[in-house]
């Protein structure tokens, strides 16, 4: 039987690090309010590799201490208002990154190695503000500086996917960043559109896009659980709702009013 959303949220403890996916990959918006109601704060968010509405809401609710990200925005609906305000106030710590650096850090954790080398970055102020990212001389061909990105090992990864089976295997299709998050994280919490009775591993066509239950701590049912974001192959984003949020959340009061509304069924 699937767990409920509150049970999933209660696994998050104050001070934990959370990995959250990019807006088009499968954001578990259904988990956002349960996380806020649960109230575990002082969180470190890692956006894989960028963040949006969910990140903005968790920041607006005061649960976030630090954000590592390549960007936070509401896409077509514009800038992320609570994120932008928190950065200006200095009320959150921002660790600016670039997309492939986040992928590299997760990849290192996936391999169980301490770091991953990556190209680019040298001469940027991103690198200048990340003392833990080291530049070494390529040991195999000297005179070639290269950056090392430390492994990113989130305590919890949270995402939304089309389906899971009764064994806890989750179908992620070609959204492999969801697998990368799960490999790297200690525990992964997944919400899904539906639970199917057949094993996703029984058919090679679904098995290829399946994240095995080995990496999945808990699954909960949440139809339209990415809303107002879309879910690939299922439904489109609700841009009007994103715009409504963007307008409302320009002020702290507007954000509070928006969050106090009943969630549409």
């Amino acid at each position: 039987m699937p767990d409920d959303l509150r049970a999933l949220a209660s696994r998050v403890r104050p001070g934990m690090s959370l990995a959250l996916p990019v807006d088009y990959a499968g954001v578990s918006m259904a988990m956002t309010r349960p996380l806020i109601d649960h109230g575990a704060g002082d969180l470190h968010l890692t956006c894989v590799p960028t963040g949006g509405l969910q990140v903005d809401m968790l920041i607006g609710a005061g649960l976030v201490r630090r954000v590592e990200t390549s960007a936070v925005s509401l896409g077509e609906a514009g800038g992320a208002p609570r994120f932008n305000q928190a950065v200006r106030d200095g009320s959150i710590q921002i660790l600016d990154a670039t997309c492939p650096a986040i992928h590299a850090g997760l990849m290192a954790a996936q391999k169980g190695v301490p770091f991953m080398p990556m190209r680019g970055l040298i001469g940027s102020d991103i690198l200048a503000n990340r003392p833990e990212w080291q530049v070494i001389d390529n040991p195999l061909a000297s005179g070639d500086p290269i950056v090392l990105i430390p492994a990113i090992r989130p305590d919890v990864a949270i995402f939304h996917a089309p389906m899971a089976d009764r064994e806890g295997n989750v179908w992620i299709g070609r959204r492999r960043e969801l697998a990368a998050m799960a490999y790297a994280a200690t525990q992964t919490l997944v919400t899904v559109e539906r639970i199917v009775d057949r094993s996703l591993l029984a058919d090679e066509l679904t098995a290829a896009g399946t994240l095995p239950a080995l990496y999945v701590a808990a699954v909960a049912l949440a139809p339209r659980g990415a809303w107002p974001y879309g879910l690939w192959g299922e439904y489109a984003a609700d841009t009007a709702e994103l715009m409504r949020y963007a307008a409302a959340a320009r002020t702290a009061q507007g954000f509070a009013d928006y969050m106090a509304q009943k969630v549409p069924a």
Binding site: P49, T50, T69, S70, A71, V72, S73, G79, A80, F83, N84, V87, R88, D89, G90, Q93, I94, D96, A97, T98, C99, P100, A101, M118, R119, G120, L121, S124, D125, I126, L127, N129
Partner: peptide, 21 residues
């Protein structure tokens, strides 16, 4: 002045890699 910029934009996305490659 970084990080408490007067105006904050979304962020660097993949620029610090793609500009090199």
């Amino acid at each position: 002045d970084y990080p408490q910029a007067k105006v904050r934009w979304p962020g660097s996305f993949g620029s610090a890699y793609l500009y090199f490659t």
